[in-house]
Amino acid sequence: MADHLAVLNMPMEALKRSATVTSFDPLTLLPALAMGPSILAWSPRLDHLRARYTIARRFASLDHLSDGRAGWNLVTTSNPDAALNFGMDEQMEHAERYARAREFYDVVTACGIHGPTTPSSAMSSGKLFRSRQSSVLNHKGRYLKVRGPSTSPARSRAGR
């Protein structure tokens, strides 16, 4: 499922016939779709200018709601007009979009709280997560500054 953050720069007559013109916000739509039983592959292309901690948190929650069927495109959109809808004057170059994605990957995969493996283990131990200290990421990179840990619950195997 493609996300579109700006109307594509196409001839009007082509746009009138393009399904890309309208686009649900994926993080509103996906939880509703997650209630269905189908095997689905979701890959909305979320924009870098939405707070990436929030993207990671929402997908960690969606990972649970969908039983591990949620995913998103780590690299931001190549649509140059999308930047104009998010407070920027121009789109980033290709290499920079990938550099940001790489750093985003590091933060997303390192930021989780590691909870008990099962609810019953939480019941027996009385502890809701294993370790807090080791989850404090204190990431300060070129594009992101995230202390962590995430407040999202432990992820499924698919959610790493």
């Binding site: 990938y98 790489r102 990957y105």
Partner: peptide
Amino acid sequence: MVQAGASDAGRQLAAETA
């Protein structure tokens, strides 16, 4: 982690994470 796209940057990202 699933990667698609054959640019140098995309392949580097895949090599490191995919």
